[in-house]
Every structure is written in C-alpha cells, then in structure tokens.
C-alpha cells in the first residue's frame, strides 16, 4: 500500500463535520471562484417502510481513498473546477446525523453543480462503503440499488 496523502481533498472520519467550516475552507484565499456548490447527506428516519434507529458504516481503508481520488480526478478532467472536498463518515451514526459532504468550487456555477453531482453519483457505486441499517425490526446490510447504478451510468 502506498502512503499518499490525499488531504486536504478527502477525509474519512468518525467525527462529525461542520458545514460552515468546510465552506470557509473552500472559499479561503479563493477569489477566482464565484460558485460554491455543497451537498450534505444525512441519516433518514425511514427506509423502505421501516423505522431506522441508526446506521453503521464500514469501509475499506486505503481503497476508499484511492477510489475517491480517482473520482475527483475524473471530475477535474471533465469540468473546469477549482477546489474539491469530500468527507465521508464511518462508524455508528444516529438519525439526522451527517454522513457525507461533497463541496466543489468553480468560476461559474454550471461546472460546480455538475461536478458535485457526478462525484456523489460515482461515490455511490464505486467507493467501498457499506451501510448496515439498525431498525426496530433488527439489523441488516443495505442492498445496492439499481437506480444508483443507472444514475452513475448516465454521465
């Protein structure tokens, strides 16, 4: 395994993140970019009719960072974007907690909008994360959705 340092663009962490702090970092000393697009994913209280109590997220250390770095580099090839930040949390997360953050800056909004959605869509189908759902009817690993595959395939 290599010891590449993917910071500051990628962070896999168990602790929460602060949206305002992340936006501030994307904007700091960055007068060239007029657009900042952010996406935050959170733990929902319901999934497929079941009451969710919490999620447990597992990942493949090393491959996760490599996979996200590749997705970010593809986004940079396709769109004129400035800064990128991807944060994904792992471990046990309660309802309403933040799971994932994707922030992208660009000179004009179209590039940042498109690149942000592209990164999220690819993260969903390529980055090695797995969610276990804890519900009032027990726990189970979530199955991958065909709709996510289809969405990523459209880019």
């Amino acid at each position: 395994m290599t010891t590449e340092n993917y910071a500051p663009e990628i962070s896999i962490q168990s602790v929460d993140f602060n949206l305002a702090d992340e936006v501030a970092l994307l904007e700091k000393d960055n007068a060239i970019d007029g657009a900042v697009v952010t996406f935050t994913g959170r733990v929902r209280n319901k999934n497929e009719g079941k009451d969710v109590t919490s999620l447990t997220l597992e990942h493949y250390p090393g491959m996760t960072e490599k996979s996200l770095a590749k997705i970010i580099s593809q986004a940079k090839e396709r769109w004129r974007i400035g800064r990128v930040k991807v944060i994904h949390r792992v471990g046990k997360l309660a309802i309403g907690e933040q799971i994932v953050f994707v922030g992208v800056t660009s000179m004009h909004r179209q590039d940042a909008f498109a690149a942000n959605e592209f990164i999220m869509d690819y993260l969903k189908v390529q980055a090695p994360f797995w969610k276990k759902e804890n519900t009032n009817q027990g726990e189970q690993w979530l199955a991958a959705k065909t709709s996510d595959e289809n969405k990523a395939a459209k880019w």
Partner: peptide, 12 residues
C-alpha cells in the same frame, strides 16, 4: 497482492 471480496457498495 492484496485481494478483496465484498458486496456491491452502499455508501453516500
């Protein structure tokens, strides 16, 4: 080599 086997991914 390091070989990994896993189910389809479900992050995000």
């Amino acid at each position: 080599d390091e070989v990994a086997f896993f189910p389809p991914v479900t992050g995000g």
